[in-house]
């Protein structure tokens, strides 16, 4: 398929919880393996996924999430320590199913040329500096993402 213009996928990663960090990274790394071009625009809490100081401690909250790894009534889910417990449970599920950890998926995205864009405006809003983000992240705004997304074949938001 090298005689054709490569297909493109443009993804927005808006959330910084553990469960929502997987889909953008899995889809983007697989897309480049399928000879597509891929970009992920990390904005608002999604910046945590590429934040060196935070991406090893992404969590998942059981509160108001009936499908959480540890489904509990909201009143219980709101108690201290419940997010930590649900996160540990989810990590153990993923580990048991031999799913690559977020760190490995990130490496695969960077190594295989996924365009990883950190949103400048939300970095300013949330006090995130360029040096907080992983090496290889490109900093840009809405126009940077749209310039890639405008002729993409697939566009998704998580």
């Amino acid at each position: 398929m090298s005689d054709q213009k490569p297909k493109k996928i443009a993804i927005i990663a808006l959330h910084g919880s553990l469960d929502l960090a997987y889909p953008p990274l899995i889809l983007a790394s697989t897309a480049v393996a399928m000879d597509m071009e891929a970009a992920i625009f990390f904005t608002f809490y999604g910046l945590d996924i590429i934040n060196k100081n935070k991406n090893k401690s992404l969590g998942v909250a059981p509160l108001a999430n009936p499908a959480a790894p540890m489904p509990v009534p909201n009143i219980v889910g709101a108690m201290p320590g419940m997010t930590m417990m649900a996160t540990a449970m989810m990590k153990s599920w993923m580990n048991k199913a031999n799913v690559a950890p977020i760190s490995k998926l990130l490496d695969m995205c960077f190594e295989n040329g996924v365009k990883m864009i950190g949103c400048q405006m939300t970095m300013d809003v949330m006090g995130v500096k360029k040096e907080d983000l992983m090496d290889g992240v490109e900093i840009g705004g809405a126009a940077t993402f749209l310039d890639f997304a405008v002729d993409s074949d697939i566009s998704l938001s998580f």
Binding site: S29, T30, A33, M34, A97, N98, V99, A100, N112
Partner: peptide, 14 residues
């Protein structure tokens, strides 16, 4: 063997 999506595809590509 033992790997889950998306690793078999990624390793095949490499």
């Amino acid at each position: 063997k033992g790997l889950s999506c998306p690793e078999p595809v990624l390793k095949t590509k490499i």
